[in-house]
């Protein structure tokens, strides 16, 4: 697995033995992951397993307590602030809420990275912004404020903004949650086209199993702080693990019991001390 042969290795993000805990609660207990360059990699798992935290660790917004994360062969947590910011320009991140700046219009939101990091003339900025907005189908919404957008539209604007600096990789945090079937379809389609047209690497964090399996090239399933399973969508569908099967099919009962751990039902119901 150790191939340090220059910058163009086929692994873009390499996570090795990463531990992270918040307070006394261990969220990750030794995660190992290789996210291949190009293609769509999905990270799935039950709610509360820290999938968003994982993205923040990759983006170096959080520091692991142990272990390393390499982005394009550079240890992202050991970079100076300046180098980290340079690397971050190569990562786009799409938050669940879109994270648009509320006091700027759609146009200004998409133009924001350009205005911060470049000194391009206004004509060129306009051109670049409109092409990105057109790509996500929202050129007509350029003068709206973020408060006037639906959740799906906000995510599309955020995608346009994330594409502004021509990133190498985009991380999607729960892109499909809470969407109606149409906007879900739009987002899946967009994600797919953007990824293949721009030759990006995409990381999708999600627990919408079917949608995610339908577009991912590679899938990791994380639970209880460790990687439980990794493989292509087909590998996952035909996994031998009961737990993975339950997760993929969405059964109510199985290795993960329906009941929260409790004392015996009968004796609890007819407890003698309460009359």
């Amino acid at each position: 697995m150790t191939n340090n042969n220059g910058a163009m290795s086929d692994v873009l993000v390499r996570i090795r033995d990463m531990h992270f805990s918040r307070g006394n609660r261990a969220i990750f207990r030794g995660i190992n992951m290789d996210i291949p360059r190009g293609g769509i990699c999905a990270i799935m798992g039950p709610s509360g397993t820290g999938k968003t935290t994982l993205l923040k660790l990759i983006g170096a917004q959080l520091k692991p307590s142990q272990g390393t994360v390499h982005f394009d062969e550079r240890d992202i947590h050991r970079l100076s602030r300046r180098d980290l910011y340079t690397e971050r320009k190569r990562m786009g991140m799409l938050f669940q809420s879109g994270a648009l700046l509320t006091d700027l219009s759609v146009f200004e939101n998409v133009a924001y990275p350009l205005r911060e990091h470049t000194a391009l003339p206004e004509r060129l900025v306009r051109h670049l912004v409109l092409t990105r907005l057109h790509a996500v189908g929202l050129r007509g919404a350029r003068d709206l404020m973020p408060g006037e957008l639906s959740g799906g539209m906000a995510r599309r604007v955020a995608l346009a903004r994330a594409l502004m600096l021509d990133p190498t990789m985009i991380m999607y945090d729960e892109p499909f949650t809470g969407q109606d079937p149409i906007s879900m379809g739009v987002l899946i389609e967009l994600l797919h086209t953007v990824n293949s047209a721009l030759d990006l690497t995409s990381i999708i964090v999600s627990h919408d199993v079917q949608e995610t399996l339908s577009i991912a090239d590679y899938v990791y399933i994380v639970s209880d702080g460790v990687v439980v399973e990794g493989g292509t969508p087909d590998d996952i569908r035909h996994s031998s693990s009961d737990w993975v099967q339950q997760f993929v099919r969405g059964d109510a009962d199985g290795p993960v019991p329906f009941q929260f751990p409790a004392t015996d039902y009968q004796s609890d119901l007819f407890a003698p001390e309460i009359v």
Binding site: K56, G59, Q61, Y85, T86, R88, K89, M91, G92, M93, F95, Q96, S97, A99, L100, L101, T102, Y112, P113, E116, H117, A158, R161, L165
Partner: peptide
Amino acid sequence: GLMKATEQLSGLEMMAVDPYQR
């Protein structure tokens, strides 16, 4: 607080913009 809750601060960080400065 609202910027934090709606992930705008994280969003800025990920756009390589320092929220302390901006």
